[in-house]
Design a protein around this nucleic acid. Structure first.
Length: 455
RNA sequence: GGCGACGUGGCGGAGUGGCUACGCAGCGGCCUGCAAAGCCGUCUACACCGGUUCGAUUCCGGUCGUCGCCUCCA
C-alpha cells in the first residue's frame, strides 16, 4: 500500500493522504444538477474520482465514494416549466439518463449516489443547528447563512470577504443582512411544483446545504477527500465548508481536490454558454476507451481541450494498446514488467498523475511488442498490463472480441492467397481492396493472412 | 480590479537544478511481393527580460499572453 499524495486546494500544496482510521478513505465528489443530459465536462470529475477510487482499491485502501445528484434546483424548475412537465418527473428522468450515460464509461458506480430530495430531514436538521448557533437567520421564510459570523469564510477559495463583490444579486438580496450571505432554504414560490415543510415555512433547500447534509449522513465529518470541478471552489465548496464547520464545529474534509475544466475552443464547456457535447453522443462517436484514454492523457488538475484532433490521437493510442494486447497470452508477466508496473502505480500515488502512468503502459507495450517480435521463448503474459489498465478502466482493451467473419470475406481471403501464390499481385491487391470495402483488413503474418475488422 | 492557474519540440502532454517522458503526426531504416501491424532511428523543445548558481526549461523578480473563479455551472 503506497503513501498517496494529492494536491489540496485549501493549502495549495501536494499533501499526503492521511486516513482518519486505518486504510479507510472516504470521498465525496459533487455530481451534476440534472436538468438535462450531462455533457463531457460533467464526465470529467466522474472519471477522475472513479479512477482514483479504483487506484486506491487496488492499493488496498478501503474506499467509499459518494457522488451526489442535485435534483432540486431553479434550473430544473425552469426546464420543467419550459417543457410543460413536472419538475420531479424531469429530475427523475434525467437522473436515470445520467446513470445510463456514466454507466457507459465502464468505470463502475460510486458506492452511494444520494439525492437532495431524499435528504430533506438531514438538511433541515443542519439548518436548525446553524440558526441555533446564530450562523443563520430566517427572513420571510428564507433562511440565510451569515457569512460575517464565520471568520474562516473565504479560506478555501483564498478570497478576502471584504474584497468580494456583492454576491448573488437576486430577489433575495433585500432580505439579506449582508449581500454575501447565501440561501440555506428558499421559501416556496407559486411557480414551483415541489415543496417541503420546515419549521420556518414550506420551501426547498438551497444548493450548497444539500452536500453538507448528504456528505455528513453518509461519510461523517472530517472525511478524507472532497472533490469536484474547479468551478465549484467558489461559492459552492466555500459555502459547504462554512456550513458544516459553523454548524458542527468540525471540518468537513481533510483534503480538497478540484479537477480542471473541459474546454471547447479554449473556452470552458458549459451549459450556460451552450458550447457543450453530450456525453452520450461523444461515447457513441468515440467509445469509452478513447474517451478514458483522452482524459487520462492529461493531468486531472489541468484544463483539457475537447476537439477531434485530440480525440483521434487518443483513439490511436488506445488502438496501439489493444494491438499489443492481441499478441499477449494469459498469465504472469515477464520479469521486466515489475518495474514498469511500479512506475505506473508510483505515478498515480504522486498526485494521481495519469499521463505518467499511461507513459508506463506505453513503455510496457513497446517492451512486449519487441519481445514478441524477437520470438524469444513462449508468449508474454498479460497479467501486469491488465492490472494497470484495469485501474484506469481500460482493461477492456485486452478483451479482443473475435468477430464473426462472413463466408464472402473468407472466400475473398482465400482467393487472394491463391493469387499471391500465383504471383498475380495485381489481382491480390484488387481482392484486398475489395475486402477493405467490405470492412475487412488483411494482415499477412507468419501464420498466414489474418482478417481484421477495419474499425 | 481581486484571487488562482498556465505558457514545453509540427500537434498534444508529463517532468526535472546537470541524466531518453510518453502519445499522435512526419521522415529514414528493418520486416513485407506491395501493404498493414510492429521494431529501430530521427525531427536536437522548454514565451520574453533580468537575477541566484559552477550550471536553470526547472528556483526568484519583472514583462507579455492565455484560461478559470469572483453570478447558476463538473
Amino acid at each position: 500500500m503506497r503513501t498517496v499524495r494529492l494536491h489540496d486546494t485549501l493549502s495549495g500544496r501536494i499533501a499526503e493522504l492521511t486516513p482518519a482510521r486505518g486504510r479507510r478513505v472516504r470521498i465525496y465528489a459533487c455530481g451534476p444538477t440534472v436538468y438535462g443530459r450531462i455533457h463531457v465536462g460533467n464526465a470529467r470529475p466522474y472519471v477522475v474520482f472513479s479512477q482514483l477510487r479504483r487506484f486506491l482499491l487496488a492499493e488496498g485502501y478501503d474506499v467509499t465514494l459518494v457522488a451526489n445528484v442535485t435534483d432540486i434546483n431553479d434550473k430544473i424548475y425552469a426546464a420543467a416549466a419550459a417543457a410543460g412537465r413536472r419538475s420531479d418527473e424531469l429530475a427523475r428522468e434525467m437522473t436515470a439518463a445520467y446513470r445510463a450515460d456514466t454507466d457507459a464509461l465502464g468505470l463502475g458506480r460510486p458506492d452511494h449516489e444520494p439525492l437532495a430530495s431524499e435528504t430533506i430531514p438531514g438538511i433541515i436538521e443542519l439548518i436548525e443547528r446553524l440558526i441555533a448557533r446564530e450562523h443563520a437567520y430566517v427572513a420571510d421564510g428564507d433562511v440565510y447563512f451569515a457569512v460575517r459570523s464565520y471568520p474562516r469564510y473565504g479560506e478555501l477559495s483564498h478570497r478576502d470577504v471584504d474584497q468580494m463583490d456583492q454576491g448573488e444579486g437576486t430577489e433575495g438580496a433585500r432580505r439579506k443582512r449582508d449581500p454575501r450571505d447565501f440561501a440555506l432554504w428558499k421559501a416556496h414560490k407559486v411557480n414551483e411544483d415541489t415543496r417541503w415543510e420546515a419549521p420556518w415555512g414550506a420551501g426547498r433547500p438551497g444548493w450548497h446545504i444539500e452536500c453538507s447534509a448528504m456528505a455528513e449522513e453518509l461519510l461523517g465529518l472530517d472525511f478524507e477527500i472532497h472533490g469536484g470541478g474547479s468551478d465549484l471552489i467558489f461559492p459552492h465548496h466555500e459555502n459547504e465548508a462554512a456550513q458544516t464547520r459553523a454548524g458542527r464545529g468540525e471540518r468537513l474534509t481533510r483534503l480538497w481536490m478540484h479537477n480542471g475544466m473541459v474546454r471547447l475552443r479554449a473556452e470552458k464547456m458549459s451549459k450556460s454558454i451552450g458550447n457543450v457535447f453530450g456525453l452520450d453522443e461523444t461515447l457513441e462517436r468515440y467509445g469509452a476507451e478513447t474517451l478514458l484514454t483522452y482524459f487520462s492523457g492529461a493531468h486531472w488538475r489541468q484544463p483539457i481541450d475537447f476537439d477531434d484532433e485530440r480525440l483521434e490521437a487518443a483513439r490511436g493510442r488506445a488502438a496501439g494498446i489493444r494491438e499489443a494486447g492481441r499478441g499477449l497470452v494469459d498469465g504472469p508477466s515477464p520479469e521486466w514488467s515489475a518495474p514498469l508496473r511500479d512506475r505506473f502505480l508510483d505515478a498515480l500515488a504522486e498526485d494521481f498523475n495519469t499521463p505518467r502512468a499511461l507513459a508506463a503502459v506505453n513503455e510496457w507495450t513497446r517492451r512486449s511488442n519487441r519481445a514478441i517480435a524477437s520470438a524469444a521463448g513462449g508468449g508474454v503474459g498479460a497479467d501486469d498490463l491488465r492490472a494497470m489498465l484495469d485501474v484506469l478502466g481500460l482493461a477492456s482493451l485486452l478483451e479482443v472480441a473475435v468477430p464473426e467473419v462472413p463466408e464472402a470475406a473468407i472466400a475473398l481471403r482465400d482467393a487472394r492467397e491463391q493469387a499471391r501464390r500465383d504471383r498475380d499481385y495485381a489481382a491480390a491487391d484488387r481482392l484486398r481492396d475489395e475486402l477493405r470495402t467490405m470492412g475487412w483488413e488483411v494482415r499477412d503474418g507468419p501464420q498466414g493472412p489474418e482478417l481484421r475488422s477495419a474499425v
